[in-house]
Structures are given as C-alpha cells and as structure tokens.
C-alpha cells in the first residue's frame, strides 16, 4: 500500500534556533496520528511545514495525489499546493477565527471551497452547505447567521464543516479542542471520530492533551526540543512509554 503522506528529514530552523529537525514518518489512508509534546517542542512548526504554511529548510513531504500519484509538496508550485489546500487537504485551526471568515454567513463559509473549485449553482451549493451544517449539528435555521453569533464550540464545528465539505483525504488539526470547555470538547471529539471513520479520513492532530489523542489518534509521535523522541501505537506509547520524556509526560497528567 502507498502511504498517503510520506515525510522525510524535515528540518526547519529560525536562525540558530531549531524549530524541528530530522522528522520522518509515513501516514497511511485512514490513519489518525497524534503529535504531542509541550509548548515549544516544535509540533506546530512541524504541522505548518507539512501543511505548506511554512517552507522547511530540508526534507520532503510526499503526498499521494489523486491525479499524479506521489508528489513532493515542498517543491510543488504554489498554485498546485493551493489547489491541494482547498481540495484534498484541510486545516483546522485552534482558533476558529483563523479558519473562518467571520463576516461571511455560515452557509457562505461552508460553500467557499465548493465555489473555489468551480461550483456555480447556488441551489446546489446551499443544499450541500445545509447537509454539512447538519452533520456538524448546526441547525438549518442558522445557515445565514454569521459565525460571530455562534458559541465557541459551534464555531469550531463550523470550521470543521467548512474544511470537510470538499471531501479532503488529509486533515491537519492544530489543537482542535483547545480553548473549548470539557463538555464541548467531548462532543467535538465524538463528531470528529465519526467523520474520520465515515469518510475514511487521514489526520494529523497536534495537541498537548493526551486524553484527546487517546480517543482520536491511532498512532502517536512524541516531540521534544524539535525532535521526535518516541513513536508507536497510541495506547502503547501512553501505557508503556519508553523514552524518559514520554514517561515524564504521561506521569504528569492528573488522573481524574
């Protein structure tokens, strides 16, 4: 089987400071991988490099494109990378304000990706948007409301609908449940799990919340000071951590 995403030797530095270095892994279709580590461990830098928001200094990010098979997205032209960004890739930001157009209605937010790839039938766009709002548990009567009238949890769900409407194959998530209260987090996690399974999505989830990865991620990558210190099955890494840092991380979590 061809990996959906094959990452090799990614390195990104900020002057003399290392953002992340020597990161490599394969992600297969349908797999959800969690990237954990403390603040400043390089996990967000890595995610930005993989999603094409930052250009890595070294390394390749090979994505199995629909049309042409495996392509290195680092050396791909910007129009091609942008096209991926609005079709096969999706990016869910921690802060919904970064991922939504706050002055555009919920329906317009969901419809944007469709229109970006050429949808020109208002009725169909609206129908699809309605369907997707339903899937993320936003009622149809809110379709013309702007996101600023929504709660934090609703905004995050809207962001997810906006991203998944184009039927992406790979979703990048940066702390998707950060900033939400616990009950809202649970609902979002449940929703994400269902969508991942139904759509056969692959996902990379950056988070510092080990409970989130235990519920969502199949695999785990633990980062410290810009380097990957441990990888493996999520429950294995959490229950039988091998690296000193992972042991510290796991033992630092408060038991509820």
């Amino acid at each position: 089987m061809t990996p959906l995403l094959s990452v090799q030797g990614i390195r990104k530095t900020y002057g003399f400071r290392i953002g992340c270095t020597d990161v490599g892994f394969d992600l297969y279709p349908g797999e959800v991988m969690g990237i954990v580590g403390e603040s400043g461990s390089g996990k967000s830098t890595l995610l930005s490099c993989l999603a094409g928001h930052l250009t890595p200094d070294q390394g390749s990010v090979v994505f199995d494109t629909r049309a042409e098979g495996p392509r290195d997205t680092v050396t791909m032209s910007e129009p091609e990378r942008r096209m991926l960004g609005r079709t096969d890739w999706a990016f869910v930001h921690q802060n919904p304000r970064d991922g939504l157009r706050m002055s555009v209605s919920a329906g317009g937010n969901v419809g944007e990706r469709l229109m970006a790839v050429g949808a020109r039938h208002y009725g169909q766009i609206r129908e699809t948007a309605t369907d997707w709002l339903g899937r993320v548990e936003i009622t149809e009567d809110r379709i013309d409301d702007r996101p600023r009238a929504f709660s934090g949890g609703m905004q995050q769900r809207l962001q997810i609908a906006r991203n998944l409407v184009s039927g992406p194959r790979l979703v990048f998530m940066d702390e998707p449940t950060g900033g939400l209260d616990v009950s809202v987090q649970a609902r979002l996690l449940d929703l994400l799990r269902g969508l991942v399974r139904e759509m056969g999505l692959s996902a990379l989830i950056v988070t510092h919340d080990l409970a989130v990865v235990r519920l969502l991620a199949h695999r785990l990558m633990v980062m410290k000071s810009g380097r990957v210190v441990e990888t493996g099955l999520t429950d294995q890494v959490l229950d039988d951590p091998q690296h000193p840092y992972t042991q510290l991380l796991v033992s630092s979590v408060l038991q509820v």
Binding site: S105, G108, E112, I125
Partner: peptide, 15 residues
C-alpha cells in the same frame, strides 16, 4: 484563486 468572489455573490443571494 477567485472562489471568494462568488462567496460575495452567494452572500447577496442568501441575504
């Protein structure tokens, strides 16, 4: 990258 232009027209019709 002109999807946004149609978002404006979409908003018009929605409103």
């Amino acid at each position: 990258d002109y999807g946004l232009m149609h978002v404006k027209l979409y908003e018009d019709i929605a409103r």
